[in-house]
Amino acid sequence: MGFNIVVTVKQVPDTHNVSGNAMKEDGTINRSALPAIFNPEDLNALEEALKIKKITDGNITAITMGPASAVDILKECLYRGVDKVILVSDKKFAGSDTLATSYILKSAIEKNGNFDLILCGRQAIDGDTAQVGPQIAEKLDINQITNIFQTVKISKNSITVKRETDTGAEIVKSRFPVLLTVTSDTNEPRPPSVKLIMTYKKLKADDFSKKISFPDISAEKWNINSINAEESKCGFSGSPTKVVKVDNVVLTTGRAKMISNTDDGINTLFRELNQNHVFG
């Protein structure tokens, strides 16, 4: 068998282009007011997968959990050259927090079969938790390397990457299987191929799991039963995170203090930072 790569992808509201009515009165996101896009760092994960596919002569499965409309981003994956796409969708998944989501995705990855490498975007721009990737690795009981920004080397049994840390960077090597979370510095995602757009544009959510007439790819739609997931671990019941209250926070800048570029000025600055425990 070839080298099996899984990429997890998510359709998110475009929080980078927020307009006036982007937030509902209760403080939650008004998804209908924001265009749905491919989570940006998931595109970086996909790009890295495509590069690795080329080196390893492997195959890529892209998996998303979401409503039928999430088919759009799976098509975007096909337009860039993945081999298999899976929509994991069930009403019982509604309200899933990161714990439930990672359980559902982990179940889907297991159901999909052997894998050598799982690539996830570091975080999604709607929740910004960066938890799902690490939790999937934890549940699958495999190695994980988070916040990578460069693939250094791939060999038959291992991968070496550079990852960001708070203080700089680390070079980390891991055996397969391993899960990587990928940052936007890793690569420049490729555009879709127009040839593949013309080929797969007509694929609809209803066509998933049907025998479709595209010889080179497969498209599946799975529900809670197909991935053998326990209902109690999915959706609201599987999500310990409860949003108690959402506040609108208006960030304001404090009064600026000018400090002169002299020894005295710098001493004052240090004293103040020390007193405020910014240092020490």
């Binding site: 879709p192 127009v194 593949l196 757009i197 013309m198």
Partner: peptide, 24 residues
């Protein structure tokens, strides 16, 4: 697989090609 089925399909292809070009 990427050949158009009819006129509307061809126009849709052209439109999508131009979207990709415009974006790049």
């Amino acid at each position: 697989l990427h050949a158009p089925q009819n006129e509307a399909d061809a126009m849709d292809n052209y439109n999508k090609v131009l979207e990709v070009v415009g974006n790049i």
